[in-house]
Design a protein around this nucleic acid. Structure first.
Length: 701
DNA sequence: AAAACTCCTCTTTTT
DNA sequence: GAGGAGTTTT
C-alpha cells in the first residue's frame, strides 16, 4: 500500500495523530472515533517512513482479541510479517521479555504462570495454615491483587497498616504468598507486569537494552492501565517516543485496578505532551450521541471533548418501562421480532446488554418463546474447566518441578491413594528443608521414612512425572495423549470432558509446547468462533466495550441494577456506573432502547424498582416514551433519591464501635437490609466478626 | 471415594 | 433459588 493511501481514509485529526511522532502524544478518542484504526495506521506509517525499523515498535493492548485485530490490520497495511513484532497484550509481551531476562530476579526462565484460580488455591492454602479466615480467600486475593497492581510490596503495605491487626495479618499473608510464588517458580498476572518493572528499576542496563530495542511505543485503551502498567510505560517511554490512545469516559475497570487518573497524570509525567482529540463518531446517529453525551457530561473530572456524528438525526432513543423483568424481556423479544420482520436487520445486528449476568435468564426465555436465535457472550471460560486445568497442571509440573500448586492439584487426580495426610506430611517436610514438594517426595521415596504402602504410591507418582519429563514429545498433542494414558486420567472422565480435552488438543495445532502452555495461561476465553448462524447477542455492559451493533437494548435501567446497589455508596463508583451506561449506549449505531422494570426478582426476593437516576439526565426531546403500563404506575424518572429509602446504617466502614464482650473494634463493612442488616467488625483481640445488627448490641464511640 | 448434606454467597472480570 | 464448596456419612 502506498504512503498516500495510508492517509486517504483518515480525517484531519487522525492524520495529525499519525504524523505527530516527535514527542509524547495523548490521543483522546471518543467512542466510535476509529482509534484502533489510528494505531494500526500509525504503526504502518512509522515503519514505512523509516522512522522505525520493523520490530522496534512496542504496541500494547489489553485483550488478545484486540492484539490479534491489530496484528491483522498492521500486516495488511504494511504487507509485513508481524509474527516477531512486539505487538500483544501487556501480559504477553512482559512474559516474552521475562522469559529471557528474569534470572537476576531469582526466578528460572521456565516459570509457571498462575491464573486467578491458582492464586485463590494458593492463598486459601496459606490462610488455612495461618488459621486466618479461610473463607475470605477471595477478598484477600483481591486485596493483594490491588496492592500488587499498584506496586505496593508487603513491607511498604505493612508500614501503612491500620494498627488493628487485620492489615498486619494481611501483610503477612501477602508476604508469604509472594514467597510461595517464588518457591514455586511461579508468577501471577500482576507479577508479569510488576517484575518487569522491578527488573528495569533494579537493573538499568536491562532497561537500557530494551529502550534501545523499542524505538516507539503505542498503547491502546490507555484509560484501563493500572499503576504498574503506567510505571512500565514511564520507564520505557520517558524519551517521548510514545503515543497513547484512550477515553477517560470509557474507564470501567476500576475494580480491576485500572486507574483513570493515568489519563490526567500523563501530561505531567511526560513533559511536552501533545493532545489530539478524535471527536468524530463514525458509529452512532446524532440523537444517540446526544443522549449518551448528556448522561456522561454529569460526571466530574473529565477531559473535555465534543463528540459529533456525521449521521444527523436518526431515530429518537426509545425508552420503555415495564411491570416486571419478564414483561421487559418479552418486550425486547417482540421488538426484535418486529424489526427483523420489517427486513432491515438480521438477528446478528441486535444486542441486549445488562449489568449483571443473571439478567440474561428472562431474556433467554423470551427469545426462545419467540423462536429467535441468540448467543450469550461471557460466562465460564473454556480454560477454567477442571479437566483443562488438570491437564495443564500436568504439563506445568513436568516443565517446572517446583510448581507446588500444580503438583497439589494432580497428585491425587486421578485418585492414586495419596491422601491429605500424606500431602501435609510432605508439606511440613518441604517447609523445614526449604525444598519443593516434588523434591521432598523424591527423597522420601529414596530414604523410605514412610510406610511401604505410601512409599510405593509416591514412587509411582515420581515415576509418572519422570516418564513424562523425559518424553521427547514433538507436539502438544503427543504430550497430552501420553499424559492421558500414563496417568490413567482418561479412564476417570466422561464423554463431555474428553470432548473438551480433544478441543484443547485441536487448538494447539503445531504450537511449541512451552508457547502453548503460556498461551493457555494468558488466555481467558476461547474465541467464540460462533456457529456462523446469525443470532442476537446477549452480554454484560462490560463485555460490550469495543463492539458495535445496529440495534442495542439496555435493560434494567433501575436504581439498584444500574447503578448496581453495591456501587451506591461511593461517588467514584457511581461515576463508574455512569460510564458503564455511557459505554453501553455508544455501542448503538441506529436504534437504542432503554428499558426498566417496576418489579424484579434479584436473588431470592422480589423488589420494587425505581427508574435509574441516570435516566433523569436525558433531555426529553431526544427520547420517545413508549407506554406499556398504565401511566399511574409508571414511575417518572426522578432525580436521585435522598438516602432516606436506601438501607440506612448507623455505622460506616472505618468507624469504631464497642461490643459488650469483645471491646473496641473497627467496622469494615455494612451490608444486608431490614432485619438482616449485618456489620463486619474487626476486633483486635479476635479478628473479624460478622454481626447481625439487631442482636449485636454495639455502641458507637 | 462417592454420595448426601449443610452452609454460604450472590457485580462487573481485559490477563 | 442455585451453584459451589466443605463436611459428614456410607
Amino acid at each position: 500500500m502506498s504512503k498516500e493511501s495510508l492517509f486517504e481514509s483518515l480525517n484531519p485529526q487522525q492524520r495529525e495523530a499519525l504524523l505527530y511522532t516527535e514527542g509524547p502524544l495523548l490521543i483522546l478518542a471518543c467512542a466510535g472515533s476509529g482509534k484502533t484504526k489510528v494505531i494500526a495506521h500509525k504503526y504502518a506509517h512509522l515503519v514505512k517512513s523509516r522512522k522505525c525499523s520493523p520490530n522496534s515498535i512496542l504496541a500494547l493492548t489489553f485483550t488478545n482479541k484486540a492484539a490479534n485485530e491489530m496484528k491483522n490490520r498492521i500486516s495488511s497495511l504494511s504487507a509485513r510479517d508481524v509474527e516477531n513484532a512486539w505487538i500483544g497484550t501487556f501480559h504477553s509481551q512482559c512474559n516474552r521479555l521475562l522469559r529471557r531476562e528474569i534470572r537476576p530476579l531469582g526466578y528460572r526462565p521456565d516459570f509457571s504462570i498462575y491464573d486467578e484460580d491458582d492464586q485463590h488455591t494458593l492463598i486459601r492454602h496459606i490462610l488455612r495454615e495461618f488459621r486466618f479466615h479461610e473463607a475470605l480467600f477471595k477478598g484477600v486475593a483481591a486485596r493483594i491483587g490491588s496492592l500488587k497492581s499498584s506496586l505496593i510490596g508487603p513491607d511498604e503495605f505493612l508500614s501503612t497498616g491500620d494498627g488493628f491487626g487485620f492489615d498486619e495479618k494481611l501483610a503477612k499473608v501477602y508476604m508469604r504468598y509472594q514467597d510461595d510464588l517464588k518457591r514455586c517458580n511461579a508468577l501471577d498476572f500482576d507479577d508479569l507486569i510488576g517484575l518487569t518493572v522491578a527488573l528495569f528499576e533494579k537493573y538499568p542496563e536491562v532497561l537500557g537494552k530494551y529502550k534501545g530495542i523499542f524505538s516507539y511505543i503505542l498503547i491502546d485503551e490507555f484509560q484501563d492501565t493500572n499503576r504498574a502498567q503506567y510505571r512500565l510505560l514511564k520507564l520505557l517511554g520517558c524519551g517521548g517516543n510514545i503515543s497513547v490512545v484512550g477515553d477517560d469516559d470509557q474507564s470501567i475497570y476500576r475494580f480491576r485496578g485500572a486507574d483513570v487518573n493515568n489519563v490526567f497524570r500523563f501530561e505531567e509525567d511526560f513533559p511536552g505532551t501533545k493532545i489530539i482529540r478524535l471527536e468524530q463518531n463514525y458509529r452512532s446517529t446524532q440523537n444517540i450521541l446526544n443522549v449518551a453525551s448528556a448522561v456522561i457530561s454529569r460526571n466530574p473530572m473529565r477531559k473535555p471533548k465534543k463528540p459529533w456524528s456525521g449521521r444527523e438525526g436518526g431515530d429518537r432513543v426509545y425508552h420503555c418501562w415495564l411491570s416486571n423483568e419478564n414483561e421487559e424481556a418479552r418486550h425486547v423479544a417482540k421488538s426484535i421480532k418486529e424489526l427483523y420482520l420489517k427486513g432491515a436487520y438480521e438477528f446478528k445486528d441486535f444486542a441486549v446488554l445488562y449489568r449483571v449476568n443473571v439478567q440474561s435468564r428472562a431474556v433467554e426465555e423470551a427469545l426462545r418463546d419467540e423462536g429467535i436465535p441468540y448467543h450469550i457472550v461471557g460466562g465460564i471460560s473454556f480454560y477454567q474447566r477442571k479437566e483443562i486445568k488438570d491437564i495443564v497442571a500436568y504439563m506445568r509440573l513436568v516443565m517446572n518441578q517446583s510448581d507446588n500448586v500444580s503438583l497439589r492439584r494432580i497428585i491425587n487426580c486421578p485418585p492414586r491413594g495419596i491422601g491429605a495426610a500424606t500431602v501435609s506430611k510432605v508439606e511440613n517436610e518441604a517447609k523445614k528443608k526449604a525444598l519443593s514438594l516434588f523434591e521432598v517426595i523424591k527423597s522420601t521415596v529414596k530414604t523410605g521414612s514412610v510406610t511401604s504402602g505410601v512409599k510405593e504410591r509416591l514412587e509411582g507418582f515420581v515415576k509418572l512425572v519422570d516418564r513424562l519429563a523425559s518424553g521427547k514429545y514433538r507436539t502438544v498433542a503427543d504430550m497430552i495423549q501420553d499424559i492421558l494414558e500414563v496417568s490413567g486420567y482418561r479412564e476417570t472422565i466422561d464423554e463431555d470432558r474428553m470432548q473438551n480435552i480433544s478441543e484443547l488438543i485441536a487448538s494447539s495445532a503445531e504450537t511449541d509446547i512451552k508457547d502453548f502452555v503460556d498461551r493457555v495461561s494468558l488466555f481467558t476465553s476461547l474465541d467464540d468462533s460462533g456457529s456462523g448462524e446469525s443470532a442476537v447477542t446477549l452480554m454484560t455492559l462490560h463485555s460490550a466495550k469495543g463492539l458495535e451493533f445496529p440495534v442495542v437494548f439496555i435493560i434494567g435501567i433501575e436504581e439498584g441494577v444500574l447503578p448496581y446497589f453495591k456501587a451506591m455508596d461511593s461517588a467514584d463508583e457511581i461515576n463508574e456506573e455512569r460510564r458503564l451506561f455511557y459505554v453501553g449506549m455508544t455501542r448503538a449505531k441506529d436504534v437504542l432502547w432503554l428499558t426498566g422494570a417496576g418489579k424484579r426478582r434479584l436473588y431470592a426476593k422480589f423488589q420494587d424498582q425505581e427508574a435509574s437516576r441516570f435516566l433523569a439526565d436525558i433531555p426529553r426531546q431526544y427520547c420517545e416514551w413508549i407506554e406499556k403500563i398504565r401511566v399511574s404506575t409508571v414511575p417518572p424518572p426522578v432525580r436521585p433519591r435522598t438516602d432516606s429509602k436506601r438501607p440506612f446504617f448507623p455505622y460506616v466502614a472505618g468507624c469504631r464501635v464497642r461490643h459488650p464482650k469483645w471491646g473496641v473494634g473497627v467496622v469494615r463493612d455494612c451490608y444486608g437490609d431490614g432485619d438482616e442488616q449485618k456489620v463486619m467488625v474487626n476486633f483486635p483481640s479476635i479478628g473479624i466478626k460478622k454481626l447481625v445488627l439487631r442482636f449485636a448490641n454495639l455502641e458507637k464511640i
